[in-house]
Design a protein around this nucleic acid. Structure first.
Length: 616
DNA sequence: CTAGGGTTAG
């Protein structure tokens, strides 16, 4: 229009500014602002309203307010946009102040404004402000329509107050997809995916968003098989997934850890045309890493034309869980030279984790300091968790404890759990007892802490204490989480529990186990029952250890998988010392690559050695 | 200007 010397009227400006808002294009927005003023539209209320929106969307909230304040005519839309701006900048005190100002200037706040505010509160989990706004609504004469009702419900649901959300849902008639979806994701987020499923099954009209919410619910609740099941069911109803759906599906594959399944999903996202999307590729990096293929994760990463902080963080974390500290740190350095990509707090979790799993105490300390001093990132619980882990694993128990005692926030279950694990590993039983007790104050049902206490007491022959712990566990129905290993074969997942007898080829598997033990013994295998601290006699201990789930999975792999192919095992708990040794020897004796994913990292065993260098 | 699903996280 400008090139043709075409007269531009004021009506062109609001949509232009809206485009700038959506693209967060500040310099273009300013140019349009300048042009508008030049053409004499600077005090047109519609243009001014759009300017408020543009500056707010670009994060310049005080500039938005400046335009807002000098307006001579503000309608309800102007107020709403200004309030929305404060919501996006999370300045909720300004939101409340502006609401009051609005009332005193004779503009009544309407449902839409409240919907906007409540949605923002939900997004950031600000229950306090949400409740205040709820109070305003109840006191006023505003009619609660279905949008506002859903926004209220969603605010409570996404802040974790499911009692309130459910009671609002009960009052809502008729139900609608939006409200039901909010309830589904609310229940999923508080860990009650079963309740989410009940609501889901009740729904008559299911759309893509609610299917995605259910898939994500299962994926986030560490029920990847359920997530994949419901994803296939959705497709049978003829509903086509979009990118958001696929992100949850890919994440489910990552949780599952099954590489063949993962490759199939990768092919699928390529087929439906999402193969070049940045978030999809980020998820794929993580998926391949968690399915044990660092090579394929790297391949995805290197092929990406654009990379953001999530791409780099995923790649760094990938190296970390595979024990490749050198590359984790190298990529962290490389990242510094990328334009527009700075590390965030999750990136630091990745590099600190890498240091902790490699025993690089000094390097980790330096990184932690640079995070604060160079990058201005305030350490979170997760970072302290990494640091406690870093010291603890490296047998610097005193340093670990000092950190727990001096960190600026209260230690949570994770922190005490990490410290307790360090005490167990380094036989610091007195401090271990202390840690276990702190842990139980926060989570009285923590199975690991009870088992550890019982084992400490048994070791010190304090039989009365042992009895008390066992009785407590029995009364409350707490038991040690049972070991569970998985192996993928012909597109099927085979699961084995400790001492499992359910598999249809169990006889063969146990026979194979005996054969394997014999062969390994000739190569120097000596059962190590150190990790079994319960008061069993030595023969019983050996039996317990022999039937650990990963050994059963390994034997099944040796029976079924063709010679020299890689055997991949996924385990729910951490691998014990004996199994670790078993896997290493087996990799040599049977000339196989054996990859085990335990609760926190990968072990690549080859030629009798493990990638973790026996530090895990 | 108005309601629901998303990738990285011990």
């Amino acid at each position: 229009m400008q090139n043709r010397a075409f007269p531009i009227d004021r009506f062109a400006f609001p949509p232009l500014l809206k485009a700038a808002s959506k693209a967060s294009a500040l310099s273009e927005g300013r140019m349009i602002h300048g042009l508008g003023v030049k053409l004499g539209y600077g005090s047109d209320p519609f243009v001014e309203t759009a300017l408020v929106g543009m500056y707010a969307a670009c994060g310049l909230i005080s500039e938005a307010r400046f335009v807002f304040d000098k307006m001579s005519h503000r309608d309800v839309v102007t107020w709403n946009i200004m309030i929305d701006g404060y919501c996006q900048s999370r300045l909720f005190d300004n939101v409340l102040a502006l609401l009051e100002e609005m009332k005193s200037s004779n503009t009544e706040p309407d449902q839409r404004i409240f919907t906007t505010i409540l949605t923002a509160c939900g997004r950031v989990g600000n229950l306090d402000i949400g409740k205040v706004v709820h109070g305003f609504i109840s006191e006023s004469n505003i009619v609660i329509d279905s949008h506002l009702h859903s926004a209220l419900l969603n605010m409570y649901a996404s802040s974790g107050d499911m009692d309130m959300a459910q009671s609002l849902y009960d009052k809502l008639e008729p139900k609608n997809v939006v409200a039901s979806t909010a309830i589904i994701s609310g229940y999923s987020k508080v860990g009650n995916v079963e309740a989410a499923r009940l609501v889901f099954d009740e729904m008559v009209d299911k759309d893509l968003v609610c299917w995605s919410a259910m898939i994500s619910g299962y994926s986030e609740s560490d029920k990847p098989q359920e997530a994949l099941k419901i994803f296939h069911e959705m497709q049978q109803y003829g509903i086509k997934p979009d990118q958001v759906t696929m992100l949850s599906v890919i994440s489910a594959c990552a949780h599952l850890g099954a590489l063949d399944q993962a490759k199939k999903i990768h092919l699928f996202v390529d087929e439906i045309g999402f193969g070049k999307a940045l978030p999809i590729n980020n998820a794929l990096i993580d998926m391949y890493a968690k399915c044990g293929s660092l090579e394929e994760a790297k391949e995805v990463f290197l092929r990406m034309r654009r990379k953001n902080v999530i791409s780099w963080t995923s790649m760094i974390s990938a190296f970390a869980i595979h024990g490749d500290v050198d590359n984790a740190l190298k990529y962290f350095q490389k990242m510094k030279f990328e334009k527009n990509v700075g590390p965030n707090w999750i990136t630091f979790v990745g590099v600190l984790y890498a240091c902790s799993h490699a025993g690089l105490v000094e390097e980790g300390k330096k990184l932690f300091e640079s995070m604060v001093n160079e990058y201005g990132i305030t350490p979170r619980l997760e970072h302290y968790g990494c640091m406690v882990d870093l010291y603890g694993r490296a047998n610097r128990i005193e340093d670990a404890l000092k950190l727990v005692e001096t960190m600026p926030m209260a230690p949570n279950v994770v922190i005490w759990g990490s410290f307790m694990a360090a005490c167990r590993q380094h036989a610091e039983f007195e401090l271990g007892e202390f840690a276990a007790k702190r842990l139980l104050e926060l989570d009285p049902d923590h199975d690991g802490a009870h088992v550890f206490l019982s084992n400490i007491y048994a070791k010190e022959k304090r039989w009365e204490n042992v009895g008390a712990v066992r009785q407590f566990m029995k009364n409350k129905g707490i038991s040690k989480e049972r070991g569970l290993s998985m192996i993928e074969m012909d597109n099927e997942i085979h699961e084995f529990l400790t001492a499992d007898k359910r598999h249809k080829r169990m006889d063969e598997i146990y026979a194979k186990l005996e054969e394997v033990v014999e062969k390994l013994k000739k190569a120097g295998y000596d059962p190590n029952t150190n990790s079994v601290m319960v008061d069993l006699d030595e023969d019983e201990k050996r039996e317990v250890i022999l039937w650990h789930s990963e050994k059963l999975a390994l034997c099944y792999g040796l029976i079924r998988k063709e010679k020299q192919s890689c055997i991949r095992i996924i385990k729910n708990l951490r691998i014990c010392e004996d199994c670790h040794n078993f896997m290493k020897l087996a990799s040599k004796v049977f000339d196989r690559e054996i990859v085990v994913r335990d609760r926190t990292r990968f072990h690549h065993c080859k030629d009798g050695l493990c990638s973790c260098k026996d530090y895990w």
